Amino acid sequence: MRPTDEQEELRAAVRKLLARRPGPDAWGPLTGQIGAAGLAVPEELGGAGCGPLEVHVVMEELGRALAPVPYLGSAVLTTRALLDCGEAALLPALAEGTAVGALAWAENGSWEPAAVRTAACRGPAGGWRLTGVKEHVLDGADAGLLVVAARTDAGVSLFEVPVDGPGVRRERVVPMDATRPQARVVLQGAAGRLLGADGGGDRVLSRVRDLGCLALAAEQVGAAERCLELTVAHARERVQFGRPIGSFQAVKHRLADAYVQVEAARSIALGAAHAAATGAPDLPRFAAAAKSACSEAFSAVAGEMIQLHGGIGITWEHDAHRYFKRAHGSAQLLGTPAEHRRRLADELGLTSRQVA
C-alpha cells in the first residue's frame, strides 16, 4: 500500500501550498492550480479522474494544517452525491472550485438515512416543496449549491434547492471547531428539483457516508500526526529540572504510545482507502472501522498534546487547542465512534461489545 510517485507529488504540492497560503485563501489555488476539488470527478465531467487514494492524500494534508476550506463538504460529500445521482451538469463548477456545494443531510444529530424526516411533497402547480430542518450542514451558509435529503412517498430522495429561494433560511452556527463552518438550514415549502431517482436517496447517502468517513479518517490521521510532531518538538525544547522533558522516561512512554496510535490509525485509514479504490464489496465495514479508530486516535493524541505542553497548551497563543477542538468535532461528524462500532458489529453479525 505504498503511495505512488504521483501521489507523493500531490502531497508535496498541497503541503507547500498550505504553508504558503494558510487559512481560507488556500481554496483558490488549491482548486485552480492543483485541481484538488475535481480529483474524484471523471475527466469527461471536468475532473482529474482520480479516486479515493488521491482524496486521502489531500485530506491528510488538510488535516495537518487544519485548513478551513470547504473540501470535505463540497469536493467529497456533495460531489459524491451528485455523481451517484447521475447529475453531470452540476459537477464541472464543483470540480473547478468556482462553486461550493453543501449537502444538507443530518437531522437531530443523526446521519443515518433512515433518520431523514424532512418532507418533500408535490406542489399544486407541479414540482416539489420541501419542509424541514437540517443541522450540521458543512459550509451551508456560504455554499452556492444546496443539495437536500428529504423523504417522499417513495422514500428518501435528494433535491437541488435554490440557496436564496423562498422558504429557505440558512443560519450560520458557532461550532466548537471554528475552522469547519457549519449552518442550520430551515426549509418551509422551499422549491426543490429532484436529483436522480425518486426514493434512491438511501443508496446514495449510504455510499456518501462511507466515502465521507474515509476522507474524514484521512484528515484525522494527518492532524494527529501533526499533533505528535509538535509535541515531540516541545518535549525536546522544554527544559525542566535542568533537562529536556523528553528525556524523562514517563514522557517517552506517552510519546511512544501516541506514535503507535497514529501509525495504527494511518494503517486502517489507508487500508480503507485502498478498499474503496479497488471496489471492495465490504467497504461499509472498512469505513466504519476507520472512522471509529481514527476518531479515537486523534482525540487521544490531541489530548496528550494538551497535557504535555502544560499551560501553554490551553492558551490562544498555541495551536494545541485548535487541534483538540477539531478532534472533538470530527469525532461527532458523520456519526460517533460508538455508532460506527455498532454499524461494524451489525455488518459482522457481532455485538457492539465484541468490536469495542
Score class of each variant (00 low, 15 high):
His309Asn: 08
Ile306His: 12
Arg203Ala: 14
Leu90Thr: 03
Gly63Trp: 11
Ala256Ser: 14
Gly140Ala: 05
Gly140Gln: 06
Ala275Cys: 13
His321Pro: 01
Asp25Met: 02
Val148Gln: 01
Gly144Gln: 08
Pro3Phe: 14
Ala265Leu: 07
Lys325Ala: 15
Gly189Leu: 02
Leu83Cys: 10
Gln220Thr: 07
Leu90Ile: 02
Phe241Gly: 01
Val137Ser: 00
Gly303Cys: 07
Ala256Tyr: 12
Tyr259Gln: 11
Arg203Leu: 12
Ala119Met: 07
Gly212Asn: 04
Ala190Met: 00
Ala190Asn: 00
Leu334Asp: 03
Glu219Tyr: 15
Leu94Cys: 06
Gln261Arg: 15
Gly23Asp: 05
Gln182Tyr: 12
Gly310Tyr: 02
Val137Glu: 01
Asp257Met: 07
Trp316Glu: 15
Arg353Cys: 09
Ser299Ala: 15
Val239Arg: 04
Ala331Met: 02
Val208Pro: 03
Ala275Asp: 12
Leu333Thr: 05
Glu219Gln: 14
Ala275Phe: 13
Ala250Ile: 04
Asp153Glu: 15
Gly313Pro: 03
Glu54Tyr: 12
Lys291Ile: 06
Glu317Ala: 14
Glu296Thr: 13
Ser267Gly: 09
Arg341Trp: 11
Thr31Arg: 00
Ala102His: 00
Gln182Met: 15
Gln220Arg: 15
Ala12Asn: 08
His328Asn: 06
Ala149Val: 07
Glu317Leu: 11
Leu39Gln: 08
Leu39Ile: 15
